[in-house]
Computed example of a mutant assay.
Amino acid sequence: MTETETLSRALIEEAARKSGLIWLQGPAGPSRALWHVWHEGAVCLVGGGAGEQPLDGLGLEDGGTVTVTVRSKDKGGRLVTFTAHVGELPARGDAWAAAVAELKGKRLNAVDAEGIEERWARECRVLRLTPAGTLPLPSDSLAAVPVASPATTRRPMPAALPRLLRKRRR
Rank of each mutant, 00 (worst) to 15 (best):
E3S: 07
T4F: 05
R9A: 08
E14Q: 14
A16V: 12
A16C: 15
R17V: 01
S19F: 06
G20R: 09
L21R: 14
W23K: 10
P27H: 01
H39Q: 15
A42H: 03
L45D: 02
V46S: 05
V46H: 02
V46R: 06
G48T: 10
G57P: 02
L58H: 02
L60K: 06
E61F: 06
D62G: 04
D62M: 03
G63Q: 12
G64P: 12
V66N: 12
V68H: 04
V68L: 05
T69N: 14
G77S: 13
G77V: 10
L79C: 04
V80T: 09
A84C: 05
L89Y: 02
A91V: 06
G93I: 04
G93K: 05
D94V: 07
A95Y: 01
A97F: 02
A98C: 03
A99S: 02
K106R: 15
V111T: 15
E117F: 00
R119W: 13
R122K: 13
P131Y: 02
A132W: 10
G133Q: 10
S139F: 07
D140H: 13
V145R: 14
A148R: 14
S149W: 03
S149V: 09
A151M: 14
T152C: 02
R154F: 09
P156A: 15
M157E: 09
A159H: 11
A160F: 07
L161N: 03
K167T: 11
K167R: 14
